[in-house]
Design a protein around this nucleic acid. Structure first.
Lengths: 110, 110
DNA sequence: CAACTTGTTCGAGATTTATCGAACAACATA
DNA sequence: TATGTTGTTCGATAAATCTCGAACAAGTTG
């Protein structure tokens, strides 16, 4: 599957562990990641998070710039997916364990 | 072995995933965690990190309040150790995978 | 082309975090 | 008791982050 519209993202070898952990340390972003993990690919608009578009877009930016999420255009919406292979190659087991932990614990600030 | 002087830390069941990830998302704190992971127990003063005591103390506080690290007094120094069992029970595989990832990748800001 | 949808970018304000020096507390030892 | 060691707490400042509305860009559909 070829991605037509690539957004700014780090190449696999340059994904930074602190940045990945920071990206996942926010409850909103964790919720986004969990939903993508369940559904495989999710459009930005498919999250019923009570929050302005601009704020949500900010969180997607953090997720992309950290290397956790990638996006491709499909029509006029952006489909988001996890960079599971890149992350697994660089930090084996990390994303998997964090997602499993996120599924079993309520994600709250504090 | 009994800990005589307990510092403020969350009980195991109340350890928060976002807080743990945030604690580990700082390169200085990750370096601290990696050193403790290698040595088992390390006194605060045993880190040759070019940084004032107060700043280092701040990072230890974040690590303790997140539940990643616990400390006990030994003479007039504080021995720090990872709460590996508590974290493994609550978030299986997470700390282990992150430590392994930290060992194999240079921990840098950015 | 005009209207609509989806999502980003651009400011700005508010909150959080990191860093540091100085003062303080606990402990050990002379 | 006085001195030295270890580490914390207390301000203050600087930097990063989160949040939001308004404007913009890309794509679709009438």
């Amino acid at each position: 599957m070829v991605c037509k519209t690539e957004i700014q993202q780090p190449v696999a070898e340059e994904i930074s562990l602190p940045k990945v952990l920071h990206a996942l340390s926010d409850p909103v972003r964790m919720e986004i990641v969990l939903k993508i993990a369940r559904a495989g690919e999710v459009a930005c608009g498919a999250f019923d998070i009570p929050m302005p578009k601009s704020t949500l877009s900010h969180h997607f930016r953090v997720l992309r710039e950290s290397g956790v999420v990638a996006s491709r255009r499909e029509g006029n919406e952006l489909m988001n997916y996890l960079r599971s292979e890149d992350l697994e190659a660089r930090f084996p087991g990390v994303l998997e364990a964090i997602i499993a932990a996120g599924k079993t614990s309520s994600i709250e600030r504090g």
